[in-house]
Design a protein around this nucleic acid. Structure first.
Lengths: 224, 224
DNA sequence: CGCCCTATTGAGGGAGATCAACTCGGGTGG
DNA sequence: CCACCCGAGTTGATCTCCCTCAATAGGGCG
């Protein structure tokens, strides 16, 4: 993409301190602001101070960790509405980057902690957020530990289709490399698997970033 | 083990309703009771109503999911002090079994929810619990997605050594099959890897369930 | 002492990784 | 407008790490 929409090389900062605040969760607005990040731009890095939580307004982001020798594990993809980067400790335990150009709402960690202390509803929302993420990661552990390449790719496509309702196919914002590092595979295996699914008439691939789930029920059978 | 300590074939139930309650988390006691489970006994099953949360008093438990064809992924091992089985929804998303004979404290979900509503401290503790588990699973995703067999086993041994302080080696309560299903490997690979680490003088294996970390720093190097 | 379950060891095979070449598509500049 | 370029994606050939299948060894409990 990297469109002409880009107005500044540095992250654009839109301060919304004029009252409305960011609706971080239903019914509660916290003071905050939004930032725009271009493709592959770092949102925050591992070990950095975790002063903010982030909520995707538009676009998508990835969170990941890298081993010393460069092996990367993408822990999650974050789509509009998703919250990430909220830590228990003082520092981030993984990095976050923009998958595509994206707008992110930032809320100060201190504001969230204050809200959680003052409001029981907020505290419960916080727990629900963590619990939901936990469920996602438990499913993902099963995928990474025990599923075959085909099952992983099928799971991924179904998950993306569910998360981004888009008539007539999934719009993949991320590269094959991102998908591979998310699924614990290589780029080549992801590509080959997609081709094979297409040959089996499970999916169609009109363009590399768009996948049509022709037979979602068959795809669900590929999964286990 | 399966010691003579076993007094009943059915789970023994020790009702502690006589006042003290279970100290589920620091500073707050919730009414509850304890149960004893024998080795491999089910504590709760996938899809069951999640009416309770569980805290290990002694022994160890495993949480896991199984695919339709029997492939199993152990999501976590739970040692004394660990809490598990607390769900966001109405049902358990995975099963839990006793790894060894173990005593577990049960607390009603409704009691926890009531406490979280009444007490901000409790609500924050709840969030911390989920966040901690989340951190553990993020690390585990990296392990399952990107680490080699040797790195996985090394990580596991170091983790267990840290969690169960035991002078002169780790006491493994779980079988090789449990370890394999936790690390996304097979029993054979776990066994071979341990043997190789012993040959390399990283560890000693006086008995199959006891591992001595002769050179923990070298082991940490095996990891990545 | 002997059974049975767990763990180890060995031989062979396969799913996915690696290395490498080629294709495609979108952007840029002539 | 077209030629070129460059990164992303696909495809092919080969390799290897781990899985599978099979046999053996150990160890706890009767």
């Amino acid at each position: 993409m990297q469109t002409a929409e880009t107005l500044a090389t540095a992250p654009a900062l839109h301060d919304h301190s004029t009252g409305t605040g960011v609706e971080m969760f239903p019914g509660l607005c916290l003071g905050g602001f939004t930032m725009r990040f271009e493709r592959d731009e770092e949102i925050f890095g591992e070990q950095e101070e975790a002063d903010f939580a982030y909520k995707i307004v538009s676009g998508a982001a990835r969170t990941f960790r890298v081993l010393s020798d460069g092996r990367r594990q993408v822990v999650g993809f974050h789509l509009p509405g998703d919250v990430f980067g909220l830590e228990r400790g003082e520092t981030h335990r993984f990095s976050a980057e923009a998958v595509s150009g994206c707008v992110v709402a930032l809320v100060r960690r201190t504001a969230i902690e204050r809200a959680a202390r003052a409001d029981g509803e907020a505290a419960r929302w916080l727990w629900g957020l963590a619990a939901g993420e936990l469920e996602r990661l438990q499913d993902h552990a099963m995928l990474l530990g025990r599923k075959t390449a085909t099952e992983r790719v099928a799971s991924f496509l179904l998950d993306m289709a569910e998360r981004s309702p888009f008539a007539g196919g999934v719009q993949l914002l991320m590269s094959r490399a991102d998908i591979a590092d998310y699924l614990g595979l290589t780029v080549e295996t992801v590509s080959r698997t997609l081709t094979q699914l297409e040959r089996d008439h499970m999916i169609a691939i009109p363009s590399s970033r768009r996948i049509v789930l022709s037979r979602p029920e068959a795809l669900a059978g590929c999964d286990a």
